[in-house]
Simulated scan of single mutants.
Amino acid sequence: MSSSSFSLTTTVPGSLALSGDLTFATAAQALESARAELDRSGQTTLDLGGVTHADSAGLATLLALLAHARTRGKTLAVTHTPEGLQALARVSGVENLL
């Protein structure tokens, strides 16, 4: 099993920063933790500047978080999206959702 890890921090008011790996190994935990934090604290920005590795499961997690916010009547802005994740979104045809 991989030693992949991620963390969530709220160092800037209104922003939830995700760092580490956003991959198949961490996606379920990242989604659950980020949803809970967004619901609890009401952040409006998801900062991906600390994401070091992402795959299709990470992209799915990001899309699920955006949908989660939307179903609660909130707008969640995504910032500092890593180039690899942007490229994956482009080839998947979902870049406009980010």
Results as ranks from 00 to 15, higher is better:
3 S>V: 04
3 S>Q: 13
3 S>P: 05
7 S>P: 00
7 S>Q: 14
8 L>E: 09
8 L>R: 11
9 T>H: 04
11 T>W: 01
11 T>K: 11
15 S>I: 05
15 S>N: 01
16 L>H: 05
17 A>P: 00
17 A>C: 08
19 S>P: 02
21 D>E: 15
23 T>P: 03
23 T>H: 06
23 T>R: 07
23 T>C: 09
25 A>F: 01
31 L>V: 04
31 L>T: 09
33 S>W: 00
34 A>K: 07
35 R>L: 00
36 A>P: 00
38 L>A: 08
40 R>E: 13
40 R>F: 02
40 R>Y: 01
49 G>Q: 05
50 G>V: 01
51 V>Y: 04
52 T>L: 14
53 H>G: 08
54 A>L: 05
55 D>Q: 08
55 D>A: 11
56 S>W: 08
56 S>K: 08
57 A>M: 15
59 L>E: 11
59 L>G: 07
63 L>D: 02
63 L>G: 10
63 L>K: 06
65 L>C: 10
65 L>A: 08
68 H>A: 09
68 H>D: 12
69 A>I: 10
70 R>I: 03
71 T>N: 10
73 G>W: 09
75 T>Y: 05
77 A>N: 02
78 V>Y: 11
78 V>T: 11
82 P>W: 05
83 E>N: 08
84 G>N: 07
84 G>F: 01
85 L>M: 15
86 Q>R: 12
88 L>S: 05
88 L>F: 12
89 A>N: 03
92 S>W: 12
93 G>S: 07
93 G>A: 05
93 G>V: 08
95 E>T: 06
95 E>N: 06
95 E>H: 15
97 L>Y: 13
98 L>E: 04
